[in-house]
Computed example of a mutant assay.
Amino acid sequence: MPPSELMPIGVFARRSGLTSSALRFYADSGLLRPAETDPVSGYRYYRPDQVARAVALRRLRAIGMPLTAVGAALDAGPDDASRLIDEHLAKVLGDAAAARREAALLKSSLADVPSRPIAALKGPVLADAVEQVLTATVREPGLPVLGGLRLEVTPEAVTLTATDRYRLSTRTLVPAEPTTATWAGTVDGEELRTSAAEIRRSPLVRLETTPHALRIRRTDRDDLHCGLLSEEFPDHRLMLASLGEATTRATVAKTLFLRALEDHPGEWATLRLTDHGMSVLPPGDDHPGASLPAAVTGQALSISFELTTLYPAVSTALGADVMLDLRGPDQPATIRSADRGDLTTVAMPIKQEDPPHDRHSHHPRPDHGGHRPRRHGGPGG
């Protein structure tokens, strides 16, 4: 190759995102040898077609893949490389889950305080509730409590609640054994999510607390430990208590509703409810939307939601039919099973900025001009 087509190591480093020292290391390791090395000066030169391999190498190392596996992935075909990446990722996640469990156990043991029993629950039921409610969490820097699950125990019930400020999910479980305990705390959502598979395999789990952790005791198995968050959880009870009466109620088949949302072309959708049924409309007039059979009572209404808010609320609802209790286009909506009320999600609609005139109703519709609508103040404070 003519020298003019070769790149010195500094230029190649900038193109690939690797440092010059890293390139020397990878050359010595045999993963990325230079195309030419000046025998007198020792300067290294690379071909333009080596950039793709260098970028892939950098990305594989960024996910912590060891050098031997990196070499195998770089030299493999697409299918084998994908398999190697998946195997590495599974190991990383497994190691992280084990580290989380050990950290929670260590924090619990440091307290040197005996745990306090608070409730017993069926493992599969608790695991389902955890996974359903945790769909309403979010990772937000500076606000770790939005990634947590609020656990409230009374002699009558165990209530799980989570909120990302725009969606709030809560589910109430009946204890498997009588209890006299009263307790409330916020559990680390990631640690609880990681533990859900183990909880599911236990017919009965007993919940106990220490100052820093929730201990989940299982028969003939090791205990699980999930850390407790110290930040104050949003006042969700005040929000729930302040919800007004529904002015529109709709009952629709869950599978049909989910299919309409999955086929929906936009990032948000408008639900139009009349006594003829419910329509799921996209942000524009170039798509007819989907018409769904629904039992609608009360006022006709158009209300809009981001799909990332609406879809999880519908998908986690229990039962074959979903009930929507609506209070107006700018008020929180309640989404739950039509016949099982122990899982409830409150979702905030989006506020439309200067919506165009709707030919068919006086309710706002999504902005056709491409402006992203704003959300109304959320249920989580």
Results as ranks from 00 to 15, higher is better:
Gly10Val: 05
Ala13Phe: 04
Arg14Tyr: 02
Ser16Pro: 07
Leu18Cys: 04
Ser21Trp: 09
Arg24Phe: 04
Arg24Thr: 04
Pro34Gln: 05
Ala35Phe: 13
Pro39Arg: 08
Val40Leu: 14
Gly42Pro: 00
Asp49His: 11
Gln50Tyr: 01
Val51Thr: 11
Val55Ala: 11
Arg59His: 15
Met65Arg: 11
Met65Pro: 12
Ala73Pro: 08
Arg83Gly: 03
Ile85Met: 11
Asp86Lys: 13
Glu87Ala: 09
Leu89Asp: 14
Ala90His: 13
Leu93Gln: 15
Ala98Arg: 13
Arg100Tyr: 06
Ser109Val: 13
Ala119Pro: 04
Ala119Gly: 04
Gly123Cys: 01
Leu126Gln: 05
Leu126Glu: 09
Ala127Phe: 00
Val130Ile: 07
Glu140Asn: 01
Pro141Tyr: 05
Gly142Asp: 01
Leu151Glu: 04
Thr154Trp: 01
Thr154Glu: 03
Glu156Phe: 10
Glu156Ile: 07
Thr159Ser: 10
Thr159Ala: 09
Thr159Val: 09
Ala162Pro: 03
Arg167Gln: 03
Thr172Asp: 06
Thr180Trp: 10
Thr186Val: 09
Val187Gln: 04
Asp188Gln: 01
Gly189Lys: 07
Glu190Pro: 11
Ala197Glu: 15
Arg201His: 12
Pro203Glu: 00
Leu204Asp: 05
Leu207Gly: 01
Glu208Leu: 12
His212Gly: 10
Arg218Ser: 01
Asp220His: 08
Gly227Pro: 03
Glu231Leu: 07
Met239Ala: 14
Leu243Met: 05
Ala246Tyr: 04
Arg249Lys: 14
Ala250Ser: 06
Ala253Leu: 15
Arg259Trp: 14
Leu261Lys: 00
Trp268Asp: 11
Ala269Trp: 05
Arg272Met: 09
Val280Arg: 01
Leu281Lys: 01
Gly284Asp: 02
Gly284Phe: 02
Ala290Lys: 09
Ala294Pro: 00
Ala294Gly: 00
Ala313Ile: 08
Ala317Arg: 10
Leu318Thr: 13
Arg327Gly: 06
Asp330Pro: 13
Arg336Phe: 07
Gly341Ala: 14
Gly341Cys: 10
Thr344Cys: 07
Thr344Gln: 14
Met348Glu: 05
Lys351Leu: 12
Glu353Asn: 12
Ser361Glu: 02
His368Ile: 10
Arg372Ile: 14
Arg374Pro: 06
His376Cys: 06
Gly381Thr: 13
